[in-house]
Design a protein around this nucleic acid. Structure first.
Lengths: 199, 199
DNA sequence: GTCTATACGCCGATAGAC
DNA sequence: GTCTATCGGCGTATAGAC
């Protein structure tokens, strides 16, 4: 039983609290099932008005959320590419990151990979054309050029590889697979890499 | 340029027209971006009232749609299991069916695989526990028992196999892959089966 | 079976006092 | 930066005439 800590004094909210609450709610219930009233409750405001100090519209909250997540992922991938030279190593570390996030910050993975952001952010490019995923596609292209990955349409290689990774993560998040993501990480990597690796 | 055929006389609608229009709209714009007004327009009614002759709520439309699709898929899978004995053959035909539907009735595949029905049909079991997908899981279990599929967690085998299939179909539907589904069917099957086949 | 008319709730959003 | 108060609008749904 969780004890509600009633604050008699006025709460002071910042932009990040709103984003965190919205991320959790969007991931749990979906964007359209989440009202500003829900977000206001989650951050401990009395009315929705306070939210408008930070965001003009509900859409803007979702957009900021997506930008932040994509930016952060993009930076992580840059870092991974800097520290590793081979495509296999780079992809391996990206998989590590995604599985680690699945356990430690599932809302981020749900919002990134499984919420259909296009339904409420129609202006945004599809995930596959976002900066971080363009970088992943480039890693695969390099892997093919260097002979690490067998010769096939880079987009198909991407599709096979991340199909396995994403589907496995999805099954962890829906509890179709009973254990935490880290328990499936090594096997999923082997299957996904084996699917596109040369020889 | 499409010529609007204005009907001066009153249109008479049946349940199936509503379902077809709703399927198309839900697949295109999503459930929450589709209003009864949209559906009414699509079937050529003047007001939404006529819809209520067939469905009590908007939810009920979506639920009927899902039931119909799952039933139809379940029957197809029964048929496939009857006509083939080996897991490889059965899975191969299921893949054939899904790719064929992707080209010929993409709305069905979108609604079945890519619309998050749980957001508006929270009472329904997750796709993985629906009748047709239970049958697919059973095919995989048999494949493992018969030594066609390598020994691994049946759920992981499912995840790898359908991860590849679904992701490839998804990329066709979003035009990330430029050609029609049938062009990728053979390769995707090889990758997916190779991922779980013994030896 | 389709229409007119209407109810009504919820939600996103704004104005302005404190 | 948070509150009170309020608004307009849309979307679902209903009652009842034809």
């Amino acid at each position: 039983m969780e004890q509600e800590l009633e604050n008699t004094t006025t709460r002071t909210i910042n932009q990040d609290e709103i984003l965190q609450a919205a991320l959790r709610l969007f991931a749990q219930k979906g964007y359209f099932n989440t009202s500003l009233t829900d977000i206001k409750d989650a951050v401990g405001l009395k009315t929705t008005s306070g939210i408008y100090q930070f965001f003009k519209t509900k859409q803007a909250i979702a957009q900021t959320l997506q930008e932040n997540i994509l930016d952060s992922l993009s930076i992580s991938i840059d870092d991974i590419r800097r520290r590793n030279r081979k495509a296999s190593e780079q992809l391996r570390e990206i998989v590590d990151l995604l599985f680690k996030l699945t356990d430690e910050a599932p809302e981020i993975i749900v919002f990134l990979l499984f919420v259909k952001t296009n339904d409420f952010l129609p202006e945004q490019p599809p995930l596959l054309n976002s900066a971080p995923f363009n970088k992943i596609k480039r890693i695969i292209q390099n892997g093919i050029k260097e002979g690490e990955i067998r010769t096939l349409d880079p987009l198909l290689a991407y599709s096979y590889f991340f199909g396995i990774i994403q589907h496995t993560i999805s099954m962890v998040l829906t509890d179709a697979l009973p254990k935490s993501a880290e328990n499936y990480q090594a096997q999923a990597w082997l299957a996904a890499w084996g699917c596109i690796a040369k020889k």
